[in-house]
Structures are given as C-alpha cells and as structure tokens.
Design a protein around this nucleic acid. Structure first.
Lengths: 146, 146
DNA sequence: TATTGTTATACTCTATAACTATA
DNA sequence: TATAGTTATAGAGTATAACAATA
C-alpha cells in the first residue's frame, strides 16, 4: 500500500466495508486451514453444526449459516456420501431431517478445527485477548440481533 | 430460531463464524440499498474509491477491496461504459491507470451512499453509537493489520 | 394453507494461468 | 526480471422457482 493511501484510507469509517475486508482475511485463513482436510468453508460449517449437540434440521442449518435451504441439501449430500454425517428423521416432524455427525465426522472436524484455529490465531493476533473477546461480543449482537 | 437453539448457539465463540454472519447481514442491507441504483456491492465499492481523492490505480483498488486485479478490469469496464468513471494515465508509471469518478459518477455515488447508509443504520441499530465506533476501531485493525 | 426437503436453472463471484506493455 | 493491466476459462457460490410429502 502506498504511503499516500495509508494516510487517506477511504471507506475506513464504513462498517460494512471493514466487515467485508476483515471477513475476507478471516475466510482466507479458514480456507488455508481446511485445505488439507478436504473441506471448504461451507461444508466445514455444516459439519461443525452436525458435531454440536443441537440436533438441527437442514432448515435450521440454512437459517443459522445464512444459506438457502437448497444449498444445504447438496452440502449434506456430499458430507453424507463421505460418511461424515447422517440424516436422522425428526421424531416430532416427519418432514424434517436432523443432521448428525458420525464418529468419522467428529474426528475430521476435530482435526480440521485445530488447523483452522491455528490460522485464525495468526489473523487475530493484531488484537489482544480482551479485545478479541470484546469484538466477539459486538459481532454476536450484530450477527444475531434480538 | 428454536428456543433450544437460542440456548445452545453453536459456533458463537468462533470469531470467523460471527464475522461471516455479521457480514452476511451487512451485505444484504447494502445490496438492498443499491438495488434501485443499478449498482452491486463490488461496483459500488470501486465507484466509492474512484470518488475518493486517493487517485488509486486498478492494482491499488484490487488490493484494497481484496479482489483479483482481473476482476477490477471488468468492474471498471462496466463503470466506464456507463460514464461513471474514467481511466487516466498515471504520470509516473505508464503501465498504471488511475480510476477517477466523473461528475455523473459522483452524483450516483452520493445517491447510492444515502440509500446504503439508511439500510445499514437499521442493521447496526442493535449497537449504540459508542459501541459502533468501538466495533469499527477493532475491525479496522483486523482489516488492515500493521 | 404453510413448511421441509428436493430438483433444476441461471447468474454472480472467485481462482488461475497466460499474454502485452512497461518498469 | 518484475509489475500493471488484460483476456480467457473453469469452478464455486448465490438466487429463484417449482414440486411432493407432511404439518
């Protein structure tokens, strides 16, 4: 970056722009962390929710990850084909299918999460621990407004 | 969102996830604000940099917006075709082209920025003014690490 | 009637490599 | 030898509409 640009820095008072650029950096780090595990950001996210004990339906996953329900279908298809998750019938609603991680899915997620955390740590180290915590609190309220 | 999910909230200690979801909300708001102005997020961002007085080259723009230089070519092509920006030769480097907004480009940007700001305000209102400022400071350091 | 998962399709965005002109 | 802009192409991500099964 030129010194002139450093001094001026357009758009840096624009939350949307800062959010987009910070997210781009974070995405690159996550992508790099997942590369060796045969996962992409979206399939990793779905797997992470399947590993969590929340017993989410595909519709829940779509809402949570801000994806279209039709996208979740092919993501779960892929994970299921690889033996990482299963579709279980919801006992209360026969339309819905709960996505649950298999033992292999849990193992892969654990290894992938470790790689991702390592990369993310480098991305976040420009903030100290308290600042990172404060950032997460603010982002949480933005990501999930009450 | 189910109450069970509200209670559990997987991934909410994951900065990358929160960043992605907050960015998705912000993007949707920006997109809605731009819809009536014939602009998309990426073309709007390039136009915003052209309106700024930083006299950025296409390469600068690519780096700043985290885009590939080849993507900037077609974005500038489109804006230029619509008379919103011009490519000016860089006096110091004949390879480089500086992207500058025309008067029409400035007008469109002003109108679009107003629409975007309105939508963004709704997205951000879950935080008070001081919190929004604090968030921008933290994001800036994440987006542009020294 | 509304919702869940599914299929299909078109469009946008992203990643990569090669080429040219200039440095 | 390296860099700025350009062209081309393939792959990933996104948006939308329609349908069957179930609520």
């Amino acid at each position: 970056m030129t010194s002139e640009l450093r001094a001026h820095m357009p758009l840096t008072d624009d939350t949307a722009f800062l959010l987009a650029r910070a997210n781009a950096r974070s995405l690159a780090a996550t992508h790099a962390g997942l590369a060796d595990h045969g996962l992409r950001v979206r399939s990793y996210s779905v797997l992470a929710l399947a590993v969590a004990e929340a017993r989410l339906s595909q519709r829940d996953i779509a809402e949570y990850l801000w994806l279209d329900p039709s996208q979740v279908v092919s993501l779960v298809d892929d994970l299921q084909r690889r033996g990482l998750v299963t579709r279980e019938p919801d006992e209360n609603d026969r339309r819905a299918k709960v996505v649950v991680a298999t033992e292999a899915g849990r193992r892969l997620h654990r290894d992938a999460a470790r790689s991702v955390a390592e990369r993310e740590r480098e991305t976040l180290e420009t903030l100290d621990a308290a600042e990172q915590q404060r950032l997460r609190e603010l982002l949480l309220r933005l990501a999930f407004p009450v």
